[in-house]
Simulated scan of single mutants.
Amino acid sequence: MSEIREAVPPRQVRAAQLLLLSLAFVGVVVLLALQDGLTYHGMGELLAPWLLVWVCALLAVTYDGRARGGVRMTTIVLMVFVVVGSLDQVFGAEDPAAFVDAALRVALGLPAVVLLFLPEARDWFERER
């Protein structure tokens, strides 16, 4: 087990938490900005990746001391799905709005995944309680 016993997350974990919460807020703004003129199918395509982002943001709320390694891994896996799917959308965007929508998920999601992979973050999530 790790030798870290602090209840305060390290900078890397706090930065990932802030990135995920910021990304969730950006998702709400993007949905409100792009919802006009969309059919139900179009709205579903726009909403689907943001649902995973919001789940990750809810998981990030627990990073204050209650979270364990499973929460970290779940966040990483969900964000990898979001980032990989968004990369496909970035390169195949039909209009500027779709490009910006996907690019924001990549630009804020990828650093969060990298931060959660760092040894300091891993050690903090696997510390003894």
Rank of each mutant, 00 (worst) to 15 (best):
E3I: 14
R5T: 15
E6S: 15
E6V: 12
E6W: 07
E6T: 15
E6M: 10
E6H: 11
V8D: 09
P10S: 08
R11D: 11
R11L: 13
R11M: 11
Q12H: 08
Q12F: 05
V13Q: 04
R14E: 15
R14V: 14
R14Y: 06
A15H: 10
A16E: 03
A16I: 00
Q17M: 09
Q17I: 02
Q17T: 07
L18M: 12
L19A: 10
L20E: 03
L21A: 03
L21P: 00
L21T: 05
S22W: 05
A24Y: 02
F25A: 15
V26D: 15
G27A: 08
V28M: 07
V28T: 08
V30Q: 15
L31W: 10
L31A: 10
A33I: 06
L34Y: 14
L34S: 08
Q35D: 15
D36E: 15
D36F: 12
L38A: 07
L38C: 04
H41I: 09
H41E: 15
H41M: 13
G42P: 00
M43E: 13
M43C: 08
M43N: 06
G44S: 11
L47R: 10
L47W: 04
A48S: 11
V53Y: 01
W54N: 11
W54F: 12
V55P: 01
V55M: 06
A57L: 03
L58F: 11
A60P: 00
T62D: 09
T62Q: 10
Y63A: 11
Y63N: 08
D64G: 15
G65K: 03
G65A: 02
G65V: 01
G65Q: 03
R66N: 09
G69L: 13
G69A: 14
V71S: 13
V71Q: 14
V71T: 12
R72C: 02
M73W: 14
T75S: 15
T75L: 06
I76C: 03
V77R: 01
M79F: 00
F81N: 07
V82M: 01
V83F: 03
V84E: 14
V84H: 08
V84N: 08
V84P: 06
G85H: 01
G85S: 00
G85N: 00
S86A: 12
L87Q: 02
L87G: 02
D88L: 15
Q89G: 05
G92T: 13
G92M: 05
G92W: 04
A93S: 08
D95Y: 08
D95W: 08
P96H: 09
P96S: 12
P96I: 11
P96K: 12
A97D: 10
A98W: 06
A98Q: 13
F99R: 08
V100S: 10
V100W: 06
V100K: 08
D101R: 14
D101K: 13
D101I: 06
D101S: 14
A102Y: 02
A103I: 01
A103H: 03
L104P: 00
L104K: 11
L104S: 13
R105P: 10
R105S: 14
V106C: 06
V106E: 02
L108R: 06
L108V: 03
L108K: 05
G109V: 02
P111M: 11
V113K: 01
V113Y: 03
V113S: 05
V114T: 02
L116F: 04
F117R: 14
F117N: 11
F117G: 13
L118R: 15
L118E: 05
L118S: 12
L118N: 05
P119L: 07
E120F: 04
A121W: 00
A121D: 03
R122A: 13
